[in-house]
Amino acid sequence: MSQETLRHNDCMNFLAVDVTKGICRRTNELVLIDSEVCGSFTTLPKCKNCAFFKENGQETIGTCTAEKTQPWTFQDLIAVTCEMYAENK
């Protein structure tokens, strides 16, 4: 993923407040989701960052291949609690 497409809510240091902003855990300041990320960006587990995520041609929607049934999922689903998550290398 290119730096331009990264958003603050893709970062592990980001604590979501609402759909526009959150708190940066490093600075304790409010930051807008859609503003440019900094050099301390750390990838947050999301489906789009998972090795089991397979795009299926639909915008933002994909498939979870970790399960036999291959259910659909979506790119921005946070996966910190998903036991099947495996970060894309």
């Binding site: 809510n9 609402d18 759909v19 933002t60 929607i61 979506f74 921005d76």
Partner: peptide, 28 residues
């Protein structure tokens, strides 16, 4: 209240905001 859509936020029912990238999943 998110009374109208703006930026990457879509208003639902003039009250709730959802990130635009999640709208396809909501519909699905």
């Amino acid at each position: 209240n998110v009374t109208k859509s703006f930026g990457n936020v879509v208003s639902i029912a003039g009250k709730f905001g959802i990130r635009s990238e999640e709208v396809p999943a909501l519909i699905k």
